[in-house]
Design a protein around this nucleic acid. Structure first.
Length: 249
DNA sequence: ACTCTTCCCCACAGTCCAAC
DNA sequence: GTTGGACTGTGGGGAAGAGT
């Protein structure tokens, strides 16, 4: 087997050659693997194709969820949400206790405890995780969608990114029907506060109960701003903004 | 009796696919 | 990058055969 003796230790493909690191050191070999056409058509690959179908539907379920909170996600997400969410969705899909192989779905799996617990606490922005930004307890009323923070003192209860002068809190109540591939969301009022020592009781109330049926998701978002001459500017393209699923029913 | 060569089988790592 | 499938080429290790 070809060994790389040079200084350049690379991994990946260059043309038809693969470079990788193994326990024996850095190796180079011809590209191996399977023809794409075989995976698509060969009877030997039924299992693989079944897996592909389930994987694809899990990814779509993730997209359904992301689409439902798209407007909030725009200012509070990182570049790998899709992958992280697909992972969670795959785990939930695996909890489908009835469907045949290749036909298991998130829609069925979500009803199996503890599937929902896998989704609770999901952070859309891994650079700003709720637990490391907000140190104040909150309550979520699953009947009304109201999120409460009593006696919230921004300067004490937040890990404030440097330069931030203001913070906005907002909630949302989403209903996501993974089986029907439909969703609806109602956002709450938002509360914009200067980052100082003033205690405020924050009450975030959805404008309505989201329409339709499905899994109820309650989300909390924190956005940081820097005020200059009376105008609040988004801080560093939302790198420090939080969006998290705080409750699920 | 010992070493070298030629096999074969096994384990391993990489590759592909699905949707985003 | 996320999952779990099957497959491929590769070297390692062991067994058997050939040679010293």
């Amino acid at each position: 087997m070809a060994r790389q003796k040079g200084i350049i230790k690379l991994t990946g493909k260059v043309g038809d050659l693969s470079f990788y690191k193994s326990k024996d050191g850095f190796l180079a070999r011809e590209k191996g693997g399977v023809e794409g056409e075989r995976i698509k058509n060969d009877p030997a690959f039924v299992r693989t194709r079944e897996n592909g179908v389930e994987f694809g539907s899990s990814a779509s379920s993730g997209k359904l969820l992301r689409d439902s909170v798209r407007t909030m996600m725009q200012n509070a997400s990182d570049g790998r949400v899709t992958a992280r969410l697909t992972k969670v969705m795959t785990q939930i899909k695996n909890m489908d206790p009835t469907s045949a192989r290749g036909e298991r779905t998130v829609g069925v799996g979500i009803a199996t405890p503890p599937a929902k617990a896998l989704l609770k606490g999901f952070n859309f922005n891994n650079r700003a995780v709720l637990g490391s930004v907000l140190f104040k307890s909150y309550s979520v009323n699953t009947g009304t969608g109201v999120i409460d923070l009593t006696g919230f003192v921004p300067i004490n209860d937040l890990n404030v990114p440097s330069g931030a002068t203001h913070v906005t809190l907002r909630g949302a109540w989403a209903k996501v029907d993974f089986s029907g591939a439909v969703s609806s969301v109602e956002e709450t009022n938002s509360q914009n506060l200067p980052i100082d020592g003033t205690a405020t009781t924050v009450t975030l109330t959805p404008t309505a109960v989201p329409a339709g049926a499905g899994t109820d998701l309650y989300l909390l978002m924190l956005e940081f701003f820097q005020e200059v001459n009376g105008v609040q500017y988004t801080l560093k393209n939302g790198a420090f903004n939080v969006l998290s699923i705080v409750e699920i029913q």
